[in-house]
Write a protein that binds this DNA or RNA. Structure first.
Lengths: 205, 205, 205, 205
DNA sequence: AATGAATGAGTGTTCATTCAT
DNA sequence: TATGAATGAACACTCATTCAT
């Protein structure tokens, strides 16, 4: 019944939001508490009323804004779709999610840190393996087993699919490559899926 | 009488080398001039005898250590190889180059900065487009034209090839993913090329 | 209708008590209002409902917890006791008082501040002179006059007596010296009084 | 032959000196690096060129300015002096040393911290026991054994002697008690030694 | 060419104090 | 009375940069 007071949650959320934006723009080290406070419309001291340190704020932001449920949200029935439909739906879905503003901010924030921070790197690797790749592995393994897809290494298939999608996203949004930004998500999806399917689909004579 | 420029170049090189290592490990902001000086076996003040600032050192390091010639080194005759041979050779070659110590250091150094630094991002985008993708585009376009490869968008094909290769490299070396590190470069090459070829090759019968 | 002053006094007292404990443990500067509030089971803001500032709280604590009446409590009849009985009673009495928990807390609180705070130092000096030393001076002067004690400087005698007692207390409780803590108050009393009465030189019959 | 460069030692010494004065006046917590830098005529940042932290500076200051050799400097022959001569010489000597400017500064610096800092308290207790009291204990034990002094507890005798001397010093210099400041060191010495040797009880023939 | 002492601007952080509720 | 969110002025500390030597 009693909940954490609304206002407190709002302020925390507000600071976390500000942090997300500033970190995404400047990176963790270059972002100052002053920056974050300005973005949140408060004074730097107040950050410490809600968080133990700049790092604690960063970590809490990761937890609260982490889109762990990328693939989880996929309904189980999808597994039974024909491989082509499934992939097309999945890739488009992922593209939409990943290219959403929130997710891009998150990527910009976490990516530079992952490279430098072993803790984060371990954490992220686990997430990738257990949440994303495991799901794709299941799918590919199943479809390869029932003959819908050409037999092969389902692990590597998943890795390449994700890699291809992410390489588009990175070039589009980290490098701001206008050549690629000109493409619609549907076009990208089709290109990727075509490439993958024609390679994975068993040969008809 | 005048000091040989050789010595000067050596000292510069030595500092740049040290910077490369320290930046790769700590990132630009967290790396201090003291760190770099220690790594180079000199004192921090001396850095300013050779470079205008920490940032200037960083930029100069990028120029001097930039492996712009990734694909340039490819002999022109390769274009005439059968598509499969060409791709296999290319991917393996790129993997060997990219996973070399120097190149990995370079990636670790530049990657986090690209995300945050628009100048760098522009620079890198240009490099990617003009040096790497243009080359692949040429190849795919030619092979598609002469029927060796299924007709399609040569631009996107190149992008996906590079994306797939780089996604392997990143997971292996930025995330230190041991599952992937267990694979040999040859295995990775084969997986990638198989996937691409079977999808791109025109169907016989 | 009007709140009973009783409650107010209780709250004040409660805060002062908390302050005494926290100041004794951390010293004035290191002790934070948050510490004091936590110890008192209230919030920091409330302190300012009862006291003007942290310093005002400190000063009021001194006044309210000051054991000015150390020696005052001594019944006047004691003056007529034989010197030896008087001293033995006095020293033991003082030891018991001074080594009581409250007094020790007070010492720990005030001692470091006296050294640094001229106002406090003046205040404390006056207290010592007028309350404690004056009393001892009276006693020694009287006993020296009537021949019970060897003629000498009664002022200095008082000073040395107090100094000796306090040096025991300090080593026992500020330095936590276990060698001295092993002694009972009675043993300490006897040692001090014997020394003062007899001196170290052997008494020839 | 080669020594630590003169100038470095000077700067360190100069900072330590400044710290000694500022700490003595304000106490460790209230003294700011800015204060110390101003006193030393440098900028606060420079402190960190020579010391790891404010606390490290404090500790190093203690080591460098610690008058551990209070009693050690006493020549061994003194042991053979008659007890009275020895005591008179010793007390006067100690008074002179302890009431020297350097020593007083040191006391003002360390005293408030000892009360609050367990590490310091332990350290100081050891110093007191092993350097000062052990020496006095030896002396009193020897003289009691050979009958020059009345048999008694040599440990407590030493403690009381030091306590008496220090109580004078504290009242004179921490409380700035002008009544006592009017006395010369010789007068204080005589009072103390007389009291210890003769006691207060009249000596009957 | 090379040192490293020195600076000053800026960083994260703390905390007494205020005040709307 | 009582809370605790909020502030602002400090604080210890870091570090790129300068410069006399």
């Amino acid at each position: 019944m009693a909940r954490t007071p609304k206002v407190v949650e709002d302020r925390r959320e507000q600071i976390i939001d500000a942090a997300l934006h500033v970190f995404a723009q400047k990176g963790f080290t270059r972002a100052t508490n002053k920056d974050i406070a300005r973005e949140a419309g408060i004074t730097p001291g107040l950050i410490y009323h809600y968080f133990d340190s700049k790092e604690a704020l960063f970590m809490e932001m990761l937890e609260r804004r982490s889109p762990i449920s990328i693939v989880k949200a996929m309904p189980a029935e999808m597994f039974d779709l024909p491989a082509e439909d499934f992939l097309r739906t999945l890739v488009l879905h992922v593209l939409q999610l990943v290219e959403g503003e929130d997710f891009l901010l998150f990527i910009r924030t976490i990516a530079p840190e992952i490279i430098v921070n072993p803790t984060l790197s371990t954490l992220f690797r686990g997430l990738l393996q257990q949440q994303v790749l495991a799901f794709l592995h299941d799918f590919f393994a199943r479809k390869m087993a029932n003959g819908e897809l050409r037999a092969g290494n389902p692990e590597i298939a998943g890795q390449m699919l994700i890699g291809s999608v992410m390489s588009f996203v990175m070039r589009r949004h980290l490098l701001q490559d206008e050549t690629l930004l000109a493409l619609s998500q549907q076009e990208i999806t089709d290109s990727i899926v075509d490439m993958f399917l024609l390679g994975l689909k068993p040969r008809e004579q």
